[in-house]
Write a protein that binds this DNA or RNA. Structure first.
Length: 1095
RNA sequence: GGGCGCGUAGCUCAGUUGGUUAGAGCGCUUGCUUGACAUGCAAGAGGUCACAGAUUCGAGUUCUGUCGUGCCCA
């Protein structure tokens, strides 16, 4: 028997620290979050599973993660209460490039060492240490947040189990001919020396120049130009030029541009016409001066005219291609296929021009450029090339330069400018895979919510661009391909044995146990049978092997050698590819790799496909689409039927939060200040369907506790001085010892006060209930078993008073609304509904009204019974409210649940759907989710109660308007019909309790006191006797305002009704409603006038 | 340039299929140390629903355009 809590000594404010410390440990100990596949496989429980979008181990979680995980937790906790077997799979992502970059930078800064100093193993080892540290941090943050993850099953995208899935997947793709090696122009990060994806690139406008050069024409015919002029923003790339292009039909192109401009001109508003007209003029001028020359050049290109590439002493062709824009610059464009994406496309159309790579991986120039430039960096080469071009007379710095803003791509990871670079890359063919993922959404197998994001998803997939999966990194899943190295070959591959299997891509060979695939190509022709094959060093080779997993590599041949030995034996000449896979490759497998695939585990059988994916819109393409296609490809089933896309958290300036901007908020700071429940409730409250969440950010001064609003300026400073106390505190940027010595100023947002206040309100309402349940006994249960003492007169429902019925009606409505809101991912609606109900109805009315009832002694017959009804309803309502709120505020509700269990262990009303009073469970975590009791919903009661609320409000308003001191009792009369009077009569104690007012007369004949302040409420008139307090001027002013409002309103309605079209066009019910409103307003106006006259 | 949002009170946001005098929280003003809660109670002020058209008896809500703003893609 646990010791009873002394309820009188509960703190008057909710202590989130204490609750959080207590209950997470309790839940873990009870293993509530540990999913068991057995009952699911046995058909006893329905499964509900969610995989966490694995946060990357680059750093700690921020508020965006808090939002993402809070929403998942809300869903999971609710489903658990609904009786599902819930699996919330937690884990983290290795985030290849991001993590390696962070760790490399750190090591360079702290130890002055590069990754090459450490070596591959050394660096990877250091990153594992980093990972361990941040994984722990992240896990801690999630637990602090209250996330109900199945921690025993935590995974990491680079752990052995995930690696197994990656290998198996790559093997299947390879065997199916969906993996190939090809050339591709990539975004090259010369600092990290790796390709980065488009998504890891940001663009920034930079001041630059537009330089013009002249390339000499070789053997021009008389009358033909001797030079071709081209212009570029990157002069150094001219060393890699392989052609100059001119448009194949410059006249037609100019016509087209002109037609477009004219169309634009016709549509443009007057003030915008001028610039367009100017453009048109320029075009006409260009037609005169430039067009003949362009036509001439086009003809020269057709004839095969060559140009001399200055500085390089190389001949390059003049070609005709549409990439050249006759409307821009000189109309001609230099083509550098290996260093510009558009030029690379031109090369695709004119392969004969070739592509020359002029850059090493480190960003210096290769030996393919003339000697003087070799080894220079790109900026150095630019200077040298410009100087030499000038010296050669091909460029005049006086005339041939203009300033221009250039949209320059930068690597997100190293912040250095991106160099386009032609590199060998691993690709996954996307045609069929992408189509299958598109089908999943168009067929409705996977539903994206909100629906509009389907477009993002489908648009991206429909491009079916092959997926470059290789990364020149050390941190990641190493590509499981062994490649033949020609220089190492001395023997034969015959001893590996083989069988053959044709595929759609070249030809794959199944070797050994059939779990090793390979393909071979000799002099460009696929090899179908390598059994009798002898290597010939004169031939050109392409031979690659991919084993499904390490075990396959260990497969032994009859001679006792393993595949791996055979592969890596010197005479065979195979070695493993140096690259690693794109992080998203392993993330794409997350929904099933975490469950043990490719093993057919019980977990996988019970919980795949998962139920819902909760994520943010920026990774719909990178991650969601790829999970869908991999799920379909590998398991023939979409990984989730629903994807919920939630808003993003922005700061007060509408910018995304990030550590690098300094506007990031650590959820732990918010939790420390406001509590996890407040953070979670605040997040749910803000999660609306269409809007991103804007959150003004503040520092909290550690010296005086004032909030210091964050500005774009102070958010990047190492120290901030508090304007309140003039003391300084440090920020995340503090590095110098004198800054680090300062106390840290946490970064939070006042927005979470709403959640904190709400939690506190609920805590105090609970405290009130708990301390007023003395003598509580459960209501009689529906089956007639003994319960509450005073049931002799019938079921407890017979004793319910109007406020009880009202509350139960509202509670049922709210239960239904919250349920459907959560079913439809309307988190804000659910939170707002609960907030409004708990605060404005449960607290402001029900609890206030029970005060008078709970005040009466236990014994007396009627009063005692009434008190017990109030207690039963109070306990029941609190019980339901706790259960409804638990997914959002788990710690608070668990705390109160246990306290309530001490005083009212058996709760519920006979009228409550499906259950009479029942023994409450040991945790609200596993308590049943409330069912809405349709029978309890009573619109009539709600309308009646609304009348009481309106009269009470009128009295309060008059009191306030007349500045009547709160302690002074007042009297009032209510002129109303007899039914309303009957309704209001029993409410007298509440008028006393809640407005210190006594209704001295109620009914049709109720008289207006001599000196009264009046408030008409439609058919009801409230007159407060203010003889002792009257402030005539104040009352006159109040009434005059009311009169003006009414007159205006009446005017509007009269106008409407006078409109013949309205009366005949609108539905009769609407017209009738307007008439009623008019009548009521007119009688109110009359009452106001009468009151004014009386004054 | 294309796509998707957003623009409602000083701030942050709700506003379901068109139909009460457009709401909430914070902030502001006034009055309250009543036994759950000052992280609170009661009341008040504050809005040309970005702008211009169109549809309709009726538009914050539907359509078109403009302006502003944000994100994604090229």
């Amino acid at each position: 028997m646990p010791t009873k809590t002394d309820l009188q000594s509960l703190p008057s404010a909710y202590d989130h620290h204490a609750a959080q410390a207590k209950w997470y440990a309790f839940w873990e100990e009870k293993q509530y979050f540990h999913a068991d596949p057995a009952p699911v496989l046995a058909g006893k429980k329905k499964p509900y599973s969610v995989v966490i979008p694995p946060p990357n181990v680059t750093g700690a979680l921020h508020l965006g993660h808090a939002l993402n995980n809070t929403l998942q937790d809300i869903l999971c906790r609710r489903k658990r209460m609904q009786g599902y077997e819930v699996l919330w799979m937690p884990g983290t992502d290795h985030a290849g490039i991001a993590t390696q970059a962070v760790v490399e930078r750190r090591i360079l800064a702290e130890e002055g060492k590069s990754r090459h100093d450490l070596g591959r193993e050394g660096l990877v080892d250091r990153i594992w240490q980093w990972k361990a540290q941040y994984e722990e941090r992240i896990t801690g943050q999630l637990k602090q947040l209250g996330a109900s993850c199945d921690w025993a099953r935590q995974r990491f995208t680079l752990d052995d189990q995930c690696a197994r899935a990656v290998r198996e997947t790559f093997f299947k793709l390879f065997s199916d001919g969906k993996v190939y090696r090809g050339k591709r122009l990539v975004n090259w990060d010369t600092f990290l020396q790796t390709a980065v994806s488009d998504d890891e690139v940001f663009h920034e406008e930079t001041k630059g120049n537009f330089w013009s050069f002249h390339y000499p024409v070789i053997d021009p015919q008389p009358g033909e130009p001797t030079h071709v002029t081209i212009a570029t923003t990157r002069p150094e790339t001219m060393l890699g030029d392989t052609a100059v292009a001119v448009h194949p039909d410059p006249a037609a192109q100019l016509d087209k541009v002109e037609a477009e401009l004219k169309e634009k001109l016709a549509a443009a508003p007057a003030k915008e016409k001028a610039p367009i007209e100017k453009q048109l003029e320029a075009l006409t001028e260009r037609r005169k001066t430039l067009l003949p020359k362009l036509i001439q050049l086009r003809d020269m290109a057709a004839r095969g005219v060559m140009l001399t590439l200055p500085l390089c002493d190389r001949k390059i062709p003049l070609i005709a291609d549409e990439w050249a824009k006759p409307e821009l610059g000189s109309g001609c464009v230099k083509i550098t296929p290996a260093h510009d994406p558009n030029d690379y496309d031109v090369y695709g159309r004119h392969p004969e021009i070739g592509a020359i790579n002029i850059m090493e991986r480190d960003g210096t120039l290769t030996d393919s450029v003339p000697e003087p430039y070799r080894g220079l960096t790109m900026p150095q080469a630019r200077k040298a090339v410009l100087a030499d071009l000038e010296a050669a007379g091909c460029h005049d710095p006086e005339k041939d330069v203009e300033d221009r803003l250039i949209d320059l791509a930068h690597s997100d990871r190293s912040k250095t400018p991106i160099e386009p670079y032609l590199a060998d890359q691993w690709f996954v063919k996307m045609d069929e895979l992408a189509q299958s993922a598109m089908d999943a959404v168009t067929d409705g197998k996977t539903k994206i919510i909100p629906e509009r994001y389907s477009k993002t998803y489908l648009d991206w997939l429909s491009e079916k661009r092959d997926w470059p999966v290789g990364r020149q990194l050390w941190w990641g899943h190493r590509i499981p391909v062994w490649e033949f190295r020609k220089d190492a070959i001395t023997g034969s591959v015959r001893e590996m044995g083989s069988s053959t299997q044709p595929t759609r891509f070249k030809r794959a060979l199944q070797l050994g146990n059939g779990r090793v695939a390979g393909y071979a190509e000799v002099d460009g022709a696929a090899v179908s049978d390598i059994n009798d094959f002898e290597f010939n060093t004169r031939q050109s080779w392409n031979f690659k092997i991919c084993p499904a997993d390490d075990e396959s590599l260990q497969h032994e041949y009859s001679d006792g050698k393993s595949v791996q030995e055979a592969l890596e034996a010197d005479h065979c000449g195979f070695s493993q590819d140096e690259e690693v896979l794109d992080t998203w490759f392993s993330s794409a497998l997350w929904p099933f790799s975490t469950m043990g695939w490719p093993e057919q585990t019980d977990l996988l059988k019970a919980f795949y496909p998962t139920s819902t994916l909760v994520t943010s819109r920026d990774i719909i393409t990178l991650w969601v689409a790829r999970m869908v296609l991999m799920g379909k490809y590998l398991l023939d089933e979409v990984p989730f039927p629903e994807v919920y896309i939630h808003p993003k958290i922005l700061d007060g300036f509408g910018e995304t939060m990030s550590k690098s901007k300094g506007n990031g908020v650590d959820p732990l700071d918010v939790i420390e200040q406001f509590g996890a429940d407040a953070l979670r409730f605040g997040i749910a409250y803000l999660t609306t369907e269409t809007q991103d969440v804007r959150l003004p950010v503040e520092f909290v001064c550690p010296n005086c506790d004032t909030n210091v609003p964050q500005t774009k300026k102070n958010r990047v400073q190492p120290r901030v001085e508090c304007p309140q106390c003039n003391e300084a505190f440090r920020t995340q940027w503090a590095e110098k010892p004198e800054d680090l010595a300062l106390p840290r100023g946490p970064v939070t947002s006042e927005r979470f006060e709403l959640g904190r206040n709400f939690c506190n309100k609920l805590w105090n309402a609970s405290r009130f209930a708990l301390t007023n349940l003395e003598g509580y006994s459960p209501a009689a249960s529906a089956d007639g078993s003994p319960g509450r003492g005073a049931t002799d007169t019938g079921g407890a429902t017979n004793d319910l008073r109007i406020e009880d019925r009202w509350l139960l009606s509202r509670l049922s409505t709210v239960t239904a609304e919250v349920s459907s809101a959560l079913d439809e991912y309307r988190f804000a609606d659910a939170a707002r509904t609960l907030y409004d109900f708990a605060w404005n109805e449960f607290c402001s009315f029900y609890i206030e009204m029970t005060k008078t009832r709970l005040d009466s002694p236990n014994d007396g017959a009627e009063e005692g019974a009434d008190k017990q009804v109030a207690q039963a309803v109070l306990a029941h309502a609190l019980d339901v409210l706790l259960r409804l709120l638990h997914p959002m505020t788990p710690f608070l509700t668990e705390e109160v649940w246990h306290l309530l269990g001490e005083v009212a262990p058996v709760r519920g009303l006979p009228a409550a759907a499906g259950a009479g009073p029942l023994q409450a469970g040991e945790s609200v975590c596993v308590a049943p989710w409330p069912e809405s009791d349709a029978a309890a919903i009573d619109k009539t009661i709600e309308e009646q109660f609304a009348k009481f609320q309106a009269v009470l409000g009128a009295v309060r308003e008059v009191r306030q308007g007349q500045q009547i001191p709160p302690k002074e009792p007042v009297e009032f009369t209510v002129k109303c019909d007899a039914t309303t009077a009957e309704l209001l009569r029993p409410m007298q104690p509440y008028f006393t309790q809640m407005a210190r007012a006594t209704a001295i007369e109620l009914g049709p004949d109720a008289k207006t006191p001599n000196i009264a302040a009046s408030k008409p409420l439609g058919p009801i008139e409230v007159h407060v006797d203010v003889a002792a307090f009257i402030d005539v001027e104040a009352e006159k002013a109040r009434l005059a305002k009311e009169q003006a409002n009414l007159a205006k309103y009446i005017g509007g309605v009269k106008g409407k009704l006078a409109n013949e079209k309205f009366v005949s066009g609108a539905p009769a019910a609407v017209v009738e409603a307007e008439r009623t409103k008019l009548a009521e307003a007119e009688s109110q106006l009359a009452a106001v006038k009468a009151a004014l006259a009386k004054l």
